[in-house]
């Protein structure tokens, strides 16, 4: 069971309190009707699925209920950071540097 830091509660808590919510920074377009089928497919289905640092969303389901973002290494399952929804995408280089 992973330990996850909720950036709203500022507490590190067990995974059982959280729900995974897929890749982060997939923005729903302002005007979906103006999207081509290809663009809508991209929004709905195409995912990065990287082996390594992954920008992803979690929800503190059984806590504050907030959705937030995280960077997690999908090889080690270690969280590099978590941050609030709407905050800018953190710089990956600085995150991985702090690891070593």
């Amino acid at each position: 069971m992973l330990l996850i830091h909720c950036p709203y509660c500022d507490e590190t808590l067990p995974e059982a309190e959280f729900a995974y919510a897929g890749q982060a920074h997939v923005l729903r377009p302002q005007d979906p009707s103006a999207q081509t089928d290809e663009q809508w497919e991209e929004f709905l289905f195409i995912r990065e699925n990287p082996k390594g640092p992954h920008f992803e969303r979690w929800r503190h389901q059984h806590g504050c209920g907030r959705f937030f973002n995280a960077v997690r290494d999908t090889v080690s399952d270690k969280f590099l950071t978590t941050y609030r929804a709407g905050a800018p995408r953190p710089d990956l280089a600085s995150l991985t540097e702090s690891l070593t």
Binding site: R28, R59, Q61, G65, F67, A85, G86
Partner: peptide
């Protein structure tokens, strides 16, 4: 509820 919260919090904050 989760779906509503998702749209509310992350698409239409």
């Amino acid at each position: 509820l989760t779906m509503m919260e998702d749209y509310l919090q992350t698409e239409w904050p």
